[in-house]
Amino acid sequence: MSSKVLVLNQDYSAFNICSVPKAFLLVYLNKAELVTQAEDQFLRSISQCYFYPVVIRLHKYVHRPYKGVVMTRQNIFKRDRSTCQYCGAKDHLTLDHVIPKSKGGKSNWDNLVTACQRCNAQKGDLSPEESGMSLKQSPFKPTFLMFIRDFSGSSNENWLPYLGAR
């Protein structure tokens, strides 16, 4: 049961991703309804068989004042697909400030990238232009829907109508 379930708010907007046991509990306690279930999987108890949730919708609207992606080390790694943005390596990863902090660079989505230790040390306290290194992609702040759809690692084709086209 390691797959994830898309949770929709009452207005069918994407709200969150949760585990299958948590989604089942929300449906069982009548706090949510099943919108889409897996065709070939079921949850079984000793005496009953239940649908395996893929998308659920909350019965009550939950107001979320900040609907963005929190900037964390793990989320930057997810955005950059755990790949060094200079050489493409996947091992010994760390974070790099594109514009170094000593030169006024901030710790934000638009200035942090995933880098391997070798490239980070080679770049040092220089900008990519000064060090002769180029980024594979420019850093950016992902939207909430983009993050769920493209970077959560557990996207399901049944989620796409609620997350928008790529």
Rank of each mutant, 00 (worst) to 15 (best):
C49R: 13
W159R: 03
K4R: 15
G105L: 13
S13R: 05
V113I: 15
T36V: 15
L145Q: 08
L58V: 04
L8P: 06
K90C: 09
L95K: 04
T36M: 05
S107C: 13
C84L: 04
Y28T: 03
L160I: 14
H92Q: 13
H59A: 01
S154G: 09
S3H: 11
M146C: 02
G88A: 07
S3Q: 10
S82I: 00
Q37N: 07
S45M: 08
F147H: 12
F151R: 03
R79V: 02
M71N: 03
G105D: 06
V62G: 00
S3A: 13
Q41W: 09
I46N: 10
L26T: 01
N111V: 10
T83D: 03
K67N: 12
C116I: 03
C116E: 01
L43R: 04
G132E: 07
E157S: 14
L8E: 06
P142M: 05
M71A: 09
L163Y: 06
Y66M: 12
D125W: 05
G124I: 10
V98R: 07
D96Q: 10
Y12S: 14
F140A: 07
T72L: 10
V27W: 01
F151P: 00
C116P: 02
Q74T: 11
V70D: 02
K31M: 14
G105E: 07
A23N: 09
M133D: 00
V69I: 15
S3L: 14
T83N: 00
K101S: 11
V5T: 10
F51N: 04
V27G: 03
S152G: 05
M146P: 00
A38F: 06
L95T: 01
S131T: 03
A14V: 12
D40W: 03
I148W: 02
C18Y: 00
C18V: 11
L160N: 12
F151K: 05
S82D: 08
L160G: 00
V62A: 11
P128G: 08
F42E: 08
Q117E: 12
W109P: 08
T94D: 12
C87N: 01
F15Y: 11
Q41L: 15
R81Q: 15
C84W: 03
D110W: 11
K4M: 14
I17C: 10
G88N: 06
S107W: 07
Q48L: 14
Q122F: 11
E39R: 14
W159M: 07
L163E: 03
S2N: 13
V113Q: 05
